[in-house]
Amino acid sequence: MFSQTVMLVLVIALGIGLFGNVFYQLGKSIKYKNDERWQLIQIKANKVIYWYQGLITTVLAIILVVDLFNPFQVSLSVSNVVLGAFMLLFLQYTVELISLMYLDKSL
């Protein structure tokens, strides 16, 4: 029951991040009329996403290597692994939204 509640909260937070990102970008694009400053902010936010994806890939590779040389076996269900991958994939929209908001205020 507890894990289902945590997953529900995470899915809601990820949905808010996804739709917040879309509406934030749309609103700011209209407000700034897609000028050079806004394009620079989007480029920098995309760099943050590339770093995030690289970090996730590196962490997963380390986990796979550690699991390869681990003397004991850890069994995970496929549904939990897919759900975790889903959460990490959609978390990038929340990271992008936060970076867009930060860069918009700082530049």
Rank of each mutant, 00 (worst) to 15 (best):
Q42A: 09
N70L: 09
L68N: 00
I43V: 10
I49P: 01
V48G: 08
S79N: 11
F69S: 03
I63Q: 04
I43A: 14
S79Y: 05
M87D: 08
L88F: 14
L89D: 05
F69C: 04
K44H: 04
A45G: 13
I62M: 14
G54H: 02
Q42R: 11
I56K: 03
F86D: 11
S75C: 01
D67P: 00
V81T: 08
I62S: 11
S79C: 00
G84W: 02
F72T: 11
A85L: 14
V78N: 10
T58W: 07
I62K: 02
I43H: 12
I56W: 02
A61T: 06
D67E: 05
K47M: 14
W51Y: 13
V59C: 08
Y50K: 09
Q42G: 04
T58D: 06
V59Q: 02
V74N: 12
N80T: 10
Q53E: 09
F86M: 14
I49E: 11
I43F: 13
Y50W: 10
G84V: 03
P71N: 09
L89V: 14
K44Q: 10
S77N: 08
Q42Y: 01
F72Y: 07
P71D: 14
L55M: 09
P71Y: 07
F69M: 06
N80K: 06
A45W: 01
I63C: 06
V78F: 12
Q73T: 12
Q73V: 08
M87R: 03
L88I: 11
A45P: 03
L55Y: 02
L83V: 09
Q53V: 09
T58S: 15
Q42K: 15
A45C: 07
K47A: 12
V59H: 01
Q42I: 05
L64P: 00
N46H: 09
L88D: 08
P71E: 15
D67M: 11
S75F: 07
V74G: 04
S75R: 05
T58H: 02
N46L: 12
K47E: 12
F69Q: 02
V66T: 08
L60C: 10
D67H: 03
S75E: 14
A85T: 07
I49D: 11
W51P: 00
I56M: 12
K44I: 00
V81A: 13
Y52W: 06
